[in-house]
């Protein structure tokens, strides 16, 4: 009886292995490409960003001070929505509401942990719009409020709901960080 079954059970096992192997080959291996990109950012008045007392400042950097410049990390969410961060996405820009007061904050959140579908992460979302070579960012959680710098140097980067104000700059240039 054993002699009779032996060779055919081997064949059956081989067939099953082939099937599973075929199945395994269908699933692609390898890591998913990271969607975070680092950019050099400067406003239309040639000011760049740097940190002072854990606050994002816009100013003019010269000589060795240029190494203080903060690059912006951007993660696209949708066609025109992005998350913005610095320090490799470990600090994220967000719009904070306290009563009627609107403030730009830097929160210690990993940018890759943010999700568009979570309501609490909406404060980190910015709507990006291009006008010619420049880009502006409107907060999704605070509609009508735009990322801005002041004309005067060494003042904090903040949010404004009066983007046409002459002493306010809401337009930025980008360059991929090489």
């Amino acid at each position: 009886m054993e002699i009779c079954w032996g060779p055919y059970s081997h064949l059956i096992s081989l067939l099953l292995i082939l099937l599973f192997h075929s199945e395994a080959a269908c699933r692609p291996s390898g890591k998913r490409p990271c969607k975070m990109q680092a950019f050099r950012i400067w406003d239309t008045n040639q000011k760049t960003f740097y940190l002072r007392n854990n606050q994002l400042i816009a100013g003019y950097l010269q000589g060795p001070n240029i190494k203080l410049e903060e690059k912006i990390d951007m993660v696209p969410i949708d066609l025109h929505s992005v998350f913005l961060g610095i320090h490799g996405g470990k600090l994220c820009l967000s719009c904070a509401k306290s009563g009627d007061d609107i403030k730009l904050q830097l929160e210690e959140v990993n940018i890759t942990d943010l999700s568009k579908n979570k309501e609490e992460d909406k404060r980190f979302t910015f709507i990006r719009s291009e006008k010619g070579p420049t880009t502006s960012f409107e907060s999704a959680a605070c509609p009508g409020w735009f990322l801005c710098t002041t004309l005067e140097a060494d003042r904090p980067v903040s949010l404004t709901n009066t983007p046409e104000e002459p002493l306010i700059v809401t337009k930025f240039y980008f360059q991929e960080d090489q």
Binding site: Q46, Y60, G63, Y173
Partner: peptide
């Protein structure tokens, strides 16, 4: 190199230089 401010303009556009600080 020790005192220069870095500013960037795009090709074929109207460039802007700002005298800083």
């Amino acid at each position: 190199p020790h005192v220069s401010y870095l500013q960037i303009s795009a090709l074929s556009t109207t460039g802007l230089l700002v005298c800083p600080d």
